[in-house]
Every structure is written in structure tokens, then in C-alpha cells.
Amino acid sequence: MNDGQLRQRLSELRVPLATESARARAKHRALIALRPGDAPAPAVTDKSTLWKWIGVSAALCACVVVLIAMIHRPQAPTENLVGDRQFLRQIEMLFPGQVDAVVEQNGHVDLSIAQSSLVGSQQPVLMVFRKDSSSIRVLSFSGHRVCVLLGKEHRCFDVLATTNGGVILESDDNVWVTSHPVIVAGYSVQAQTLEASL
């Protein structure tokens, strides 16, 4: 059973609607409990809105810069984790909730974008698969399922960040804790969360 099938099965759960009497009773009691505020409501000023817009604009500019940097990046993978994290965040801003993974292989960058908004973690994770001179870098999020072509083998992993910054990869038949390099289909695999890189 895959995630889609599980989601489908869960959607079968029936939930009874609240009765009108329960709703009316709850509303009545809640309104009785409502007290006029003794603290002033936080005001969202035009100034804060302006700063938000400045922030968004700056982020978009940074996105363009990082995209250009990614395109002109040398073939050999770098370990610029902060850059990776920012890059992933900026892609996420362009496709909110839809980024499944960013895969970089031999200098080419592929985006895996879901058709609909994904529900998942916002904890970014970097995986690097290496074999001889070739390497595949995958940027994704904890809780996502990532599929890569390792040589001729198509392998999928559930990626899960641990509390100490490590990563667990789970395939259909194995579980790896990547605090130490592991070998999958002849590729050495290293993975880490990007939260700790800032």
C-alpha cells in the first residue's frame, strides 16, 4: 500500500455532523464566556506589512541570484549547505507546498513538483549518492518519499529527519541510519538535515 492508497482509505472515514442542539449549546456557553479584552489587540501596522513586502521582494531577488548560481555551478558538487537550504526554500516559495525534491545530477538540476499541494514537513534534508566520479544530490524534506535512479536501479526512500540532525532512509526492504555512510546499489549515501547548517 502506498501513500496515495493510504490517503484514499483514510478518506473513507465517516464523521457524524454535530447536532444543532449541541452546536447551539456550545455557542451559547462560549458567548457567555466571552469577555471584553483587557489587553489591546495587536495591531498589524502598515509598517510591518511594508517590511513583509520588502522581505518577500528580497527573497525573490535572492531566489533569482541563487538560481543563476546553481546554473553556473561547477560540475563537482559543493558542500554549500547554507546555499542548498536557501535554494530549496526559494524553490519552495515558487511552488508553495508542491516541491517534492530537487535532484542535481552531473550538473543538471531536476525539480520534482507535485501536481497538488503536498502535506509534509518543512525540514529540509540533503542526500548525496556517490559512485566513482558520479554523484547525485537530492534536496527534499523530512517525511517525503524520494525516488532516484542509481545506475540502472530505480530506488525509493522515505526520508525522515531525527532530532539530533541525522536522517533515516527507509526503502521497501531496508532501513538506514545515515550518521555513517551506507552503500545502496553500489552508491555510497550520505544524508543530513539542513536545519543545522545555519
Binding site: A18, A22, A26, R35, A39
Partner: peptide, 28 residues
């Protein structure tokens, strides 16, 4: 609430208590 307890009466109570607490706490 219902999905947590699977009991309609309890779901009524949890939902009601939630909004009572929300009403009391909304000022803060």
C-alpha cells in the same frame, strides 16, 4: 474531536469546551 475519541457525546463536549476556552482566552 470526534476523530480523536470516536464518541459523539465526547466530541460535543470537547468542541464546546474548546470554544469556551477560546472565548476566555481570545483577549490574550
Amino acid at each position: 474531536a470526534y476523530r480523536l475519541c470516536f464518541l459523539e457525546a465526547e466530541a460535543d463536549d470537547i468542541a464546546q469546551e474548546t470554544f469556551i476556552r477560546a472565548a476566555r482566552g481570545i483577549a490574550g
